[in-house]
Structures are given as structure tokens and as C-alpha cells.
């Protein structure tokens, strides 16, 4: 008589799975060999910095000392961040920046994609022109917009004053109330072509016969959009929004070049604030703690992005 213990039973149950997984790995060993160099590089350039940043976030790094003279302070950096007024101000700015930029760039990109999906003369040229903001270097765009917005001699101000619509040029980026919306406009201008391209690609996948059938059935333009077109674009919309959100959370160039986070910290978002803390003020520990918090937020967005992508794969696989 054979006595099977609980543990042995569990091991027996696991074995097929493990051996199956190992067998699969062995069968695909060439594929793994191909991606191995990339994994090694990623471990060096991504995993180690992440580890070091997390480690550093638990240390006090006084600006007057070298980094090696740091002292362990546990979660004090995190406590200091979460209880500081600047953190909440910068977080609020980051939320406005990210949500405002992402939502408007997406809507504008989507609307443009729908407009360009119709056949009309000059569509190709218009499409090429609209992509220009996206391909221009962010640094160059920031300098150009800085002059467009210039509070004394900007083009917008000159036009408004010239047309008699204003007595003096509007103050876009030297005013704490208007600076962030002004920067968001620049960001949207740069990003909406990306949303447009993504949504144009998505629109190619909407079956024409479905739209024709809906038209035959008497569906209005809105009904065709809402019941036929949009469901087909849901996944590409989610992916586009997530990619834009991640990019915006990570934005640096536009606010840094145009205002340096000012005036009076009114346009500081997380990344610019982290940069100033680390490289301007040498608070490496606090900056690392900020970075860890930002990393966790971005990982959360990344999780939804991967889920959205794998959802697409599953659907395509089952189709």
C-alpha cells in the first residue's frame, strides 16, 4: 500500500507544470538566447539604477558632503516629502499637466484622425503638415514657443496689440496663474499628432461593410460612430491614452526650458522638481524618494498598459 502525504501530492501536482515550463523554455532556447543580450543590458542600465535609487531614498545626503558620506534615516525622506507643502503643490501641478495634456491631446488627435479619415483633396499634405509638431525636437519647440509667448515681445502679444484686442501683451509664462495652462498648450500642440496617428491607424481596422450595413439600416452619423466605429477603437484609445499619460508624467523638456519650473514654482512638475532637488540642490536622498514614488505611479500605469495590450492579443487570438 502506498501512502501519499500532502506534501508529496502537492509536489506531484506541481511537477507537470514545472517540467512543462522548463520544456517550453528548452524548446524555445534559441528565442531566449536572442533576447538574452537585451535582458543583460536592461539589468545593467535599468535594474541597477532602480535598486540604487530605492536604496538612496532611505539615506540622508547633506548637500555639503559627498554621496558616500550619506547616513541611513529609514523612511524620513518619504515622511518629509509627504508632509511638505511643495510636494502637494508639485503633485497638483503634475496632475493638471498630465490629465490636461493627455485628455486634450487625445481628443484633438482623435477628432483630427476622424476628419482626415475622409477622402478629400490635399488630405496627404494636411496629414504631413499636422505631423510636424511631433517630429520637431522638443528643445527647439520649447525655445520657439518661449518667444511666441514672450511677455514683452511675443508674436501672440504683438498680434493682439496690433489688432487692438489688448492694451499690452498678455502675460503667459511670467504669471503664476497662466504659466501652467500655457505650457500645457505647447505640450498638446506637440503631442496631438501622436494621438492622431494612433487613431488613424485604428480607424483603418473598422470594417467598411459594418459601416455600410449600419447606414443601410438607417443609423445616423453619430450612431454609426458610437455603435460601430468607437467600439473598434476602444483598445487603441486605451493604449494611446496610457502612452500619452506615461509620457506626460515623465515630461521634462518643455517646462524646464521654457520656465525652469517657475515663476515661483508654479510650473514645477514632478520630474523638473526631482531634477532641481538632485542636480541643483544635491538632495540625492530626497530626490530618490520622489523618484521611487514616481516609479510606483508609472508602474501602475504600465500595468494597465500591458493589460490593455494583452487584452488586444487575447481578442485577436480568439478571433
Amino acid at each position: 500500500m502506498t501512502i501519499v502525504t500532502g506534501k508529496a501530492e502537492a509536489r506531484r501536482r506541481l511537477q507537470p507544470g514545472w517540467s512543462g515550463a522548463l520544456r517550453k523554455i528548452w524548446e524555445h532556447r534559441a528565442d531566449y538566447a536572442y533576447v538574452l543580450p537585451a535582458i543583460v543590458v536592461m539589468l545593467i542600465v535599468i535594474a541597477y539604477p532602480i535598486y540604487y535609487t530605492v536604496e538612496l531614498s532611505f539615506f540622508k545626503t547633506p548637500p555639503g558632503l559627498q554621496l558616500r558620506d550619506k547616513s541611513f534615516i529609514g523612511f524620513d525622506n518619504y515622511t518629509a516629502i509627504l508632509t511638505s507643502a511643495v510636494f502637494w503643490k508639485v503633485t497638483w501641478n503634475t496632475l493638471i499637466w498630465t490629465l490636461g495634456s493627455t485628455f486634450i491631446a487625445f481628443v484633438l488627435g482623435f477628432a483630427t484622425a476622424l476628419a482626415l479619415h475622409r477622402d478629400f483633396i490635399g488630405r496627404g499634405v494636411l496629414r504631413a503638415i499636422l505631423i510636424i509638431p511631433w517630429v520637431i525636437s522638443a528643445v527647439a519647440a520649447s525655445y520657439i514657443w518661449k518667444w511666441i509667448y514672450h511677455s514683452d515681445f511675443g508674436i501672440i502679444g504683438a498680434v493682439l496689440v496690433g489688432l487692438g484686442l489688448a492694451d499690452r501683451p498678455p502675460n503667459f509664462i511670467d504669471n503664476v496663474s497662466t504659466v501652467l495652462p500655457s505650457l500645457i498648450v505647447v505640450n498638446i500642440w506637440r503631442e496631438f499628432p501622436f494621438a492622431m496617428i494612433m487613431m488613424m491607424a485604428g480607424l483603418q481596422t473598422v470594417p467598411d461593410q459594418l459601416l455600410r450595413a449600419a447606414r443601410v439600416d438607417g443609423a445616423s452619423a453619430w450612431q454609426r460612430f458610437w455603435h460601430v466605429t468607437f467600439p473598434h477603437l476602444r483598445n487603441v484609445s486605451v493604449v494611446t491614452i496610457l502612452l500619452l499619460a506615461v509620457a506626460n508624467f515623465n515630461s521634462f523638456i518643455i517646462p524646464w526650458i521654457m520656465t525652469g519650473g517657475g515663476p515661483s514654482n508654479a510650473s514645477h512638475i514632478w520630474i523638473t522638481h526631482i531634477y532641481e532637488l538632485a542636480f541643483g540642490r544635491q538632495r540625492w536622498g530626497v530626490a530618490s524618494a520622489y523618484s521611487v514614488l514616481l516609479f510606483l505611479m508609472l508602474m501602475t500605469l504600465g500595468y494597465f498598459y500591458v493589460r490593455a495590450l494583452s487584452g488586444n492579443d487575447r481578442k485577436e487570438g480568439s478571433a
Binding site: P63, G64, N175, V176, P263, S264, N265, A266, G280, Q282
Partner: peptide, 22 residues
Amino acid sequence: PQSPEIMNIIVPDMLQNALTGA
């Protein structure tokens, strides 16, 4: 050693805080 932070960040911050009405 603290002079760069004082001159490049704290002093300009002081000016900006006063001039913007913050």
C-alpha cells in the same frame, strides 16, 4: 560650499515669490 544653492536657487526664488505675488 552652500553658495551655489543660495545664489542660484534661494535668492531667485525669493525674488520670484515677491514679484509674482505668491
